[in-house]
Design a protein around this nucleic acid. Structure first.
Lengths: 326, 326
DNA sequence: CTGAAAGCGCTTACAG
DNA sequence: CTGAAAGCGCTTACAG
């Protein structure tokens, strides 16, 4: 910047202004400075500027895993909103554990991000106090929890899972199983299971451990579970899959076993997938506006940075897409 | 840091050393400092430290889109390798255009990342000169190009596409179409198409514009293309899909139309998917070690930061998984 | 093993 | 509209 200033015959502070508040610099001066910048290939040192202003251009986001289409749709929304506003996304994963989250939050906070996005609503006490001490806004996107640290953006996992289960009940199914991806620290899954139980019990139907099946979240696991439902737990006439990929595996297994859907067993998935909608029969699922969650989370974050007050929560809702498997 | 130093009765520089080079500090001093740090909830200011040392902890990665399972598997590999080493991932998207890449690279460079990962091997001249001027290592992961800026990590798109096409030829198919996602600036797709043509021509078969079909990359597009191949270009007896999701759509459409695979038409996909492998018949596809590409790219980046010389290129290879659709 | 001084490249706050 | 001075919170380089 000193070099630019010298060549442009101005003080360094004028170069700084030309970059940050161009309207306060005379047009000819601005022009001269920009020419010199181009000529020299000058790229401002962001961290140096941040030091005095105490304002970085970083937004930190922590998600359970990057390798997951539903999460990355959300991250895309975050990124698309932030980039044009001059902010940069720092992305990390918690590995789906509270300790992992705390570790990455601690590491990220030392970079002084302007806001923190967490796809999780349960945190270690230490993590909470770190965040509180940092003073930056936090947006939680995993679930619309009762008491967000600051602002929650998303949908209600309870309402969504209740709606999905209730749909099966309304269609007259009486022995409804729920299948979920094993993940001890995933509060969102726990919430969905509670909603499933509530819906079943509210309707006077039976719930029980034999109707709640933990497995891995992949396509192959869904296939294995489906076979078990047909061969062993043969009273089950409907299954709700809390994780879209498992439902795909169950669907494919039904075709292989020539088990009619929904004649022999109905299938519904928590998350809609392009493939699930194209299979025959097409899978009934919840459409969740993941991209919107990311975009709105980023929008709320920038509003909070700009001095806006916490929104409490922003509900993007969900939509039940009734198709052919129920 | 000054507060910590005062409470611990040491000079600030000793606190700095306790954090950065603990082995050069007396154990009792270290202990005392760590107690005060905990008591005060002190979190070091990373950007401030970076200013004097000229060393941030940031690694920047630019990918075409975040919302893509094949890319995010790679990013997961990058992230998993970087985090334990104390580096942070700054992630951005180019939107699949060279101008978008240049813009995000420029913005990222102002944050002074230690290395740059680009999932692309073609750049604007301005982008190249920006990168060169920055002096940081660049790892290109899109393709094993001839002349990487620094080091390329990945596989040869040409070899992979040639192998896939050659496989159909070896099986005796004679009218082979190729289907690709329209994306004018995607050099990787162009390379794959060239390889397809080379394989077909090398075998004395016919290539031509009527056998090369541009479409969108999603499942639905694959279905539309498949119907066109059966109804209109009815001589075609095999199709190679440069994009895994399109092949899934084509497969599902065959089932709906009761078109036998590979009896009436063979299908192969460039990228393997869990679903594709489970469909009946299972889709022949290339297994590409995406996660490994990310991990190795991160490893090479840190090696280069540490003073290692450019590796030229690191070939992770690919594997043809012959299944039932060919 | 510990410390005093200087400085990284910007921006703030004040002055004109 | 422009500038001189001070300082953000660390680390380097030197000294002991």
């Amino acid at each position: 910047m000193v070099d630019v200033a010298r060549l442009a015959n101005v003080a360094p502070i004028t170069v700084s202004r030309a970059l940050s508040h161009p309207s306060s610099v005379a047009p000819e001066t601005l022009d001269k400075i920009h020419r010199v910048i181009k000529q020299l290939g000058y790229v401002p040192n962001g961290p140096a500027g941040s030091l005095k202003s105490q304002k970085t251009q970083l937004i930190a986001a922590v998600i359970p895993s990057i390798n997951h289409l539903f999460l990355t749709a959300m991250v895309q929304g975050v990124s698309d909103f932030l980039s044009p506003m001059g902010y940069h996304l720092m992305l990390g994963t918690s590995g789906e554990t509270l300790e992992g989250e705390e570790a990455i939050v601690r590491a990220f906070l030392s970079q002084r991000p302007r806001a923190l996005l967490l796809h999780n609503t349960v945190h270690t006490a230490e993590c909470v106090s770190l965040i509180r001490a940092s003073g930056i806004p936090v947006i939680e996107t995993g679930d619309l929890c009762e008491q967000p640290l600051d602002t929650a953006v998303g949908f209600s996992n309870f309402d969504a899972a209740y709606t999905l289960t209730r749909h099966l009940i309304d269609r007259g199914y009486e022995h409804i199983a729920c299948v979920y991806a094993r993940s001890p620290h995933n509060e969102r899954t726990q919430t969905r299971i509670k909603a499933y139980r509530a819906a079943v019990n509210d309707a006077g139907l039976r719930s029980g451990p034999d109707l709640e099946i933990a497995t891995d979240g992949d396509v192959a696991s869904g296939a294995v579970v489906l076979r078990d439902l047909i061969d062993v737990r043969s009273k089950v006439d409907a299954a709700v899959f809390f994780g879209g990929n498992m439902a795909l595996g169950a669907h494919l297994e039904c075709q292989k076993m020539q088990v009619p859907i929904p004649g022999r067993i109905a299938i519904v998935a928590f998350e809609d997938t392009e493939i699930g909608a194209m299979l025959a029969p097409a899978i009934t699922a919840l459409r969740i506006p993941r991209y919107t969650i990311g975009r709105e989370a980023a929008r709320v974050a920038l509003t909070r940075i700009g001095g806006g007050s916490p929104a409490g929560h922003v509900d993007v809702g969900f939509e039940l897409c009734i198709r052919e498997t129920s």
